[in-house]
């Protein structure tokens, strides 16, 4: 069964016809030619498909497109609409990637994670869950653990997110 939906993708309003089974990831990649989010596992186990959906980081591979009619989607490409986002600049400065396949998801996830931290959200490594967490390396690593990187850039991803955090990377 097909359905017509409207999405705002990286600031552009797009109408698209989707199968009710089409995920947001496949709607973007296969029907709207927006290939910035990647399909690494298609089952919510790697984070490569991470986008910002109405401002929050989510996995587009486990999101049905038909349920997102009217939603606003931001990909890593959209983050750079007015020049590289501070998180992207930090990834470049710290060489926080190699093959680049997980990178758009890492970037979106980092933007979401910095925003969550700015709002005082705790994480699994926050010692006192009731207190305001301090965004140290362990906190960043935990918050970025939903994004796998087989090239093994983690140490440098943490460097980059930490630097972007200092520069107000949540934006």
């Amino acid at each position: 069964m097909d359905a017509e939906i409207e999405l705002t993708v990286d600031g552009r309003r797009r109408r698209v016809s989707v199968d009710t089974r089409t995920t947001l990831l496949d709607a973007l990649r296969q029907r709207l030619a927006v290939a910035s989010p990647k399909k690494g596992c298609d089952h919510g186990q790697c984070g490569a498909c991470t986008v910002l959906l109405d401002g929050r980081r989510v996995l587009s591979c486990l999101t049905l497109a038909v349920a997102q009619d009217g939603a606003e989607v931001t990909t890593a490409d959209g983050l750079a609409a007015e020049g590289p986002h501070p998180v992207q600049r930090a990834f470049l400065d710290h060489d926080a990637f190699q093959c680049g396949f997980c990178t758009p998801g890492q970037v979106c996830s980092a933007v979401g994670a910095l925003d969550e931290a700015a709002r005082g959200w705790p994480s699994a490594v926050t010692t006192d869950v009731a207190a305001e967490p301090e965004l140290d390396r362990a906190e960043i690593a935990e918050r970025m653990s939903g994004n796998l990187c087989r090239c093994g850039a983690y140490a440098r991803i943490v460097d980059a997110v930490q630097a972007a955090g200092r520069d107000g990377g949540a934006r």
Partner: peptide, 25 residues
């Protein structure tokens, strides 16, 4: 904040699960 203060076990269990993206969903 109420969950974190009054039921930390629940906040910790939630945070121990999945990933930031999945917890947003």
């Amino acid at each position: 904040p109420r969950v974190r203060r009054r039921y930390p076990v629940l906040a910790q269990a939630l945070l121990a699960g999945a990933s930031g993206q999945l917890r947003n969903m």
